[in-house]
Design a protein around this nucleic acid. Sequence first.
DNA 1: ACTCCTTAGTCAACTTGGTGAATAGGTGCG
DNA 2: CGCACCTATTCACCAAGTTGACTAAGGAGT
Lengths: 195, 195
Amino acid sequence: MSLKYAVLAALLEGEASGYDLAKIFDVSVSNFWAATPQQLYRELERLTDDGLVQARLVAQERRPNKRMFTLSPTGRQDLAEFTARQPKPTAARDELMVKVQALDAGDPTAVRAHIEERIQWAHGKLARYERVRAHLLGDLDEDTFLREGERVGPYLTLLRGISFEEENLRWGERALRILDGRTATTDRERHGGTA
Amino acid sequence: MSLKYAVLAALLEGEASGYDLAKIFDVSVSNFWAATPQQLYRELERLTDDGLVQARLVAQERRPNKRMFTLSPTGRQDLAEFTARQPKPTAARDELMVKVQALDAGDPTAVRAHIEERIQWAHGKLARYERVRAHLLGDLDEDTFLREGERVGPYLTLLRGISFEEENLRWGERALRILDGRTATTDRERHGGTA
DNA sequence: ACTCCTTAGTCAACTTGGTGAATAGGTGCG
DNA sequence: CGCACCTATTCACCAAGTTGACTAAGGAGT
């Protein structure tokens, strides 16, 4: 149900094509609601049928034609009503954590490598987020923007995304230290230390 | 695909019924992989058919009969291989954030209230996590456990869960301050201040 | 006595989400 | 000159998740 509203919320930024939305989702929305391009196209189709967005065909030369979508008044109101309804609790889905959970009965060095990749990934995400942040702020400083900007919503979700990735980083570093501490211990034991 | 391995990983703790697993998922696993009881029962059925878990019927008096599931050697190996494969990136699904994103075109006071609820929820989760942590540690202190415990996996995922909720708390408090700062500004403007 | 909660599970229907490929011209790189 | 990537979308299928009801018995609270 929420993909619908994630799309409507994304269209608050203005007219966009399915392709545009796919990119927007990729860089920012995916942080709290991931969706593949196919999901977006399908959802836009439905939203158009239900009159929540208006579609218009833009013929292009040297590029495929595209359909641009705008939030309709009905869509805007539906979205507003949605914000007032009680949200469902967060549903996390992190495959890495499943592997970490099973680490002791699995392949600890492989899992260690996955954690390192996750750390690299987080660095990349943070760099992209910083660019989104600069873009959102425009020429205002943060305090002014937060007090007077017309759209703090996207900034707040961005802050959540940033602290999520920072937390990923801190957790990852700690996890690596812990795992390294253990292999060190195991080595010592192997050479006849503790036992 | 990962629900399968989340279940297998949970069975590393020992034999459990579907009902037990539902509770385990509720308090700890749900943090990185949420699942409803129905999903678990279905998955256990499949895993039994595929020989990855062994099922045994336990007749009970004054309680409904139950089926207890154990990880089979094949299941254990499948799980180990899974840990070595590259994980998919995290897929977040947070309805509250969708509402926050649309906040400026929606109902800011309602969203504010949702954030407050989220904060309360996070407090509750943290309290439960502390109990899980104490249970995992047993009589060891953290350092010893992390160096010598046989199963650090569940502890590491728990740490991630704890810092996630702490981050929720910090973000929530900050978001509330920001929103309050804005209504204050709006009030001043209404009384003829800034313009 | 009545109701609600807990244990323990099953079934069916439905809604979402994910995968992979097809189409098709344009651009950039070496 | 060819190959890979970018724009832009669609189709078809398959996998996964969600909802709600139903069964059944015991215990706890009012």
